[in-house]
């Protein structure tokens, strides 16, 4: 009986970690490449959830609705990138951070306007359970973990095997050098930003059935995403993966031990990590202040 709780706790933590990873990896990549902290990723997360919810209610095609959520988020991020970020990449970090915050709350306002204030329940795409060591586990959570793993592998392949990916890796190290070779770095920026937006949208669309879809959902995950990014180290993909699952487990297993601890423990962990290593587990100390 005891074991059952722990197994479902671990699975729950893995699925939470997967969502955190999908959300944070975009944020982390955008920081690494463009030196921006793109808080508006959380808007694409909410948007992805809302679009997925709306499409699902209309046509009852769960996976199609998840896909459309991610696509809509990608389109929204493309618009924002072209209209806002394209003009301000050269500005300092605080500047872009605040601008992106403006986009985030403006977008939350727009969502409230379109969909209203009431939280809405999204239906779960796969409503079956399998038994792992005698513990019933929702298949949907396992699928989320599989998708996150797939995304991680895909990102690694793109970064290590394609020339665009190599250009991105190089630009994370030194963007001036890449541009000096004649690479249109703004195209890399757009690609990365839209990719990040789509992943955020995917996270939202996948997360929607597990929580209620509501206008504040983006703001509610802000602290967790920040924490994942900080523990992992801004700009590191591997670090983001490790810390996302770490945070997922701490939240999940912590709540089994003592409920209020679940929300707080990761933040305490984060402070500890920063005390020991101010740039996170895998963060590079070379990045400029």
């Amino acid at each position: 009986m005891e074991g059952n709780i722990w197994i479902s706790g671990v699975i729950y933590g893995l699925s939470m970690g997967s969502i955190f990873f999908l959300l944070a990896v975009g944020l982390s990549l955008c920081f690494g490449l463009m030196r921006i902290i793109s808080l508006d990723q959380l808007l694409y997360y909410s948007l992805g959830a809302y679009i997925a919810y709306t499409v699902e209610t209309a046509i009852h095609q769960p996976w199609l609705s998840v896909l459309s959520g991610a696509l809509a988020a990608g389109i929204a991020s493309l618009v924002v990138e072209r209209w806002v970020f394209y003009r301000i990449y050269a500005r300092e970090l605080t500047f872009t951070m605040i601008t992106s915050f403006g986009i985030l709350i403006g977008g939350v306002g727009a969502i409230k306007y379109v969909w209203g204030l009431i939280p809405r329940p999204a239906s779960i795409p796969v409503d079956i359970q399998v038994s792992i060591l005698g513990t019933p586990v929702p298949v949907y959570r396992l699928i989320i973990v599989a998708i996150a793993a797939g995304v991680y592998v895909a990102i690694q392949i793109v970064l290590n095997r394609t020339v665009i990916g190599k250009a991105i890796r190089a630009a994370v190290e030194d963007v001036d050098q890449v541009e000096g070779l004649g690479v249109d770095v703004y195209r890399l920026f757009t690609l990365t930003f839209v990719g990040a937006g789509m992943l955020s949208g995917l996270a939202g669309a996948l997360h929607a059935p597990l929580v209620m879809v509501d206008p504040q959902m983006g703001l509610e995950v802000v602290p967790f995403v920040f924490m994942v990014v900080i523990i992992g180290g801004l700009g590191s993909i591997k670090g983001t993966l490790v810390s996302a699952f770490l945070v997922g487990q701490v939240v999940s297993l912590g709540s089994l031990i003592y409920a209020p601890l679940a929300q707080m423990a990761p933040f305490v962990a984060m402070l500890m990590v920063l005390l020991v290593k101010p740039t996170g587990l895998y963060g590079s100390p070379l990045l400029r202040r």
Binding site: K166, A170, E173, D174, L181
Partner: peptide
Amino acid sequence: FSDLTVRENLELA
């Protein structure tokens, strides 16, 4: 680029 090989550096160019 310290993380890229000579070949990858040239590929980028």
